[in-house]
């Protein structure tokens, strides 16, 4: 899986903290105030920068309607995994302390434009948004509750893929989430998937690509394998726009690229069309 690809990307300083705000996509420089004013949207190329799950929820759910669920469902260290840097448990406990989140997806019920929905938002700052057993469990439970309460499901993905520290059981979450979404659809409910920057590996190859409607944001990275892995396989340099939102739209895997300012309204509109 490819989430390490991202780790090595040389965007060490968040644009809003640097002397110059530098767009990670087009490398244009801006005064930090300008970047901030643009709400992490590059004024030059339109790239929609990464935001936390909480910020995304605030942009999406009607004010005061979001009720978080399954916060108690967290990681499980089934393998007692250790690598060169130490124990997985220590690493993820530190992540929990740092981010205040207990898994890579925040799930809750809410209203979007007045429509009752189940909303899940992934947070890339939590272990690279990796899909662990806790993440998969939250999504499966969300589907089951959504069926019970007749709510459509909206998931914003941001992930490097499966969480290898949880071994085979992280892989199995691809099956678990896809099966749960299959049941949700069979129950006559809509699933809207928003693939935000970046959505790759085991997450793009499971629930993120299964939307009745697949949406993304300008210039988001979406793909299965990592760019370097592919370049090493085909022995060729890939074009810059490879695996971009625009590339996926052109190849038929995305319904629409929606700008962040229009996202909530577009989701609400789709939910209205996809209701009985």
């Amino acid at each position: 899986m490819s989430w390490f690809e991202k780790k090595k990307e040389k965007v060490a300083i968040a644009p809003e903290k640097a002397i110059w705000a530098v767009c990670p996509k087009c490398a244009s420089r801006f005064a930090p105030e300008e970047w901030k004013k643009a709400s992490s949207i590059c004024p030059k190329c339109g790239y929609a920068g990464r935001v936390s799950a909480r910020a995304r929820i605030a942009m999406t759910a009607d004010e005061g309607t979001f009720k978080e669920v399954f916060r108690e469902v967290s990681y499980s260290d089934h393998l007692k995994f250790r690598d060169a840097a130490g124990a997985y448990r220590d690493k993820i406990e530190a992540t929990i302390r740092k981010t205040g989140e207990t898994e890579s997806i925040v799930m809750g019920t809410c209203e979007i434009g007045g429509i009752r929905a189940m909303l899940g938002v992934m947070d890339f700052s939590f272990m690279g948004g990796s899909l662990g057993t806790g993440t998969g469990e939250r999504i499966a439970r969300a589907c089951e509750q959504a069926i019970e309460e007749r709510r459509p499901l909206v998931i914003f993905s941001a992930s490097g893929g499966a969480r290898m520290h949880e071994g085979i059981l992280s892989l199995m979450q691809m099956a678990k989430t896809s099966a749960a979404i299959g049941r949700l659809k069979e129950a006559g409910l809509a699933y809207i998937s928003v693939l935000t920057d970046p959505t790759t590996g085991g997450v793009s190859a499971s629930y993120a690509m299964l939307g009745d409607i697949n949406i993304t944001e300008p210039r988001a990275l979406i793909g299965f394998a990592g760019r370097r892995v592919i370049e090493n396989t085909i022995h060729q340099k890939l074009p810059d726009d490879f695996q971009s939102a625009e590339y996926l739209l052109e190849h038929g895997f995305i319904d629409r690229i929606v700008e962040r300012k229009d996202m909530k309204a577009f989701i609400a509109k789709m939910l209205r069309y996809l209701s009985r």
Binding site: E72, V73, S74, S76, H78, T133, G134, G136, E137, A140, E166, L169, S170, M172, Q173, A175, K176, A179, A180
Partner: peptide
């Protein structure tokens, strides 16, 4: 499928 890595704490 649902039981894979079921959360129990």
């Amino acid at each position: 499928i649902r039981s894979y890595g079921r959360f129990s704490k």
